[in-house]
């Protein structure tokens, strides 16, 4: 705690008082913001965890199918089967404002909307059917994967923001406000002191005059 390096004048005092008022209000607001961010963050983190588990499980299954497919045919043949995809997927990116944080919103656009059976870009006679399963699974996983990306990025951004807000709150709570309070106290004391000395001086002068 260090008092600020200011002149102990009435002017400064009222200025500091005003500053203190603002700081306290700001602190309260930031504290509220932090709480709300925290709440949102916890919700997102939970969702993130759920999604991640789901996605990981699904991907694992898909990879298992892929491994099965790869075990029964030459790798070149496998790669050839999927070298020319039929479906193309694009992602539309926009942003959303959560407590002053811009988080991304991803939206998937597929060329073959509604034609679910068309994701397999190969013929049936030469490919093992495990490949179907693998590709179907991957296809199911993609929306979730995108959502996971979205949520995870949001979490990161929110975490950053929370960190920043907390630093501000802490700065206000443990530094600015105590400093201001101390300085104000110091100026008050100084002013009181000088007032007292003036009174004493006046009393002394009066004494001399009276004598």
């Amino acid at each position: 705690m260090a008092k600020l390096n200011v002149n102990p004048t009435r002017m400064e005092l009222s200025k500091l008082n005003k500053q203190l008022g603002i700081a306290t209000r700001g602190h309260k607001l930031l504290k509220d913001k932090q709480d709300e961010l925290m709440r949102q963050f916890i919700v997102l983190i939970k969702r993130n965890r759920e999604l991640r588990m789901e996605v990981e499980k699904e991907l694992e299954q898909s990879f298992k199918n892929f491994f099965l497919a790869s075990a029964t045919m030459a790798p070149e043949m496998l790669e050839e089967s999927i070298s020319f995809p039929k479906e193309s997927i694009s992602v539309h990116l926009s942003r959303k404002n959560v407590m002053g944080v811009h988080v991304p919103v991803m939206e998937m656009k597929r060329k073959m909307e509604g034609d679910e059976g068309s994701i397999y870009p190969y013929g049936c006679a030469q490919t093992p059917s495990e490949l179907d399963d693998a590709i179907a699974k991957l296809n199911e996983t993609i929306p979730k994967l995108l959502e996971l990306a979205e949520v995870e990025k949001a979490c990161q951004l929110l975490a950053d923001e929370i960190e920043k807000t907390r630093r501000r709150v802490n700065a206000l709570e443990y530094r600015t406000i105590p400093d201001l309070e101390e300085t104000i106290k110091y100026i008050r004391m100084k002013l009181d002191e000088s007032e007292r000395s003036t009174i004493t001086r006046l009393m002394k002068v009066k004494d001399i005059i009276d004598r």
């Binding site: 089967s81 020319f84 039929k86 870009p121 190969y122 013929g123 006679a125 030469q126 490919t127």
Partner: peptide
């Protein structure tokens, strides 16, 4: 349609 490449060649094979 790339799928048809596979289908046709499989059949002709």
């Amino acid at each position: 349609d790339p799928q048809r490449i596979g289908i046709i060649l499989d059949r002709l094979y």
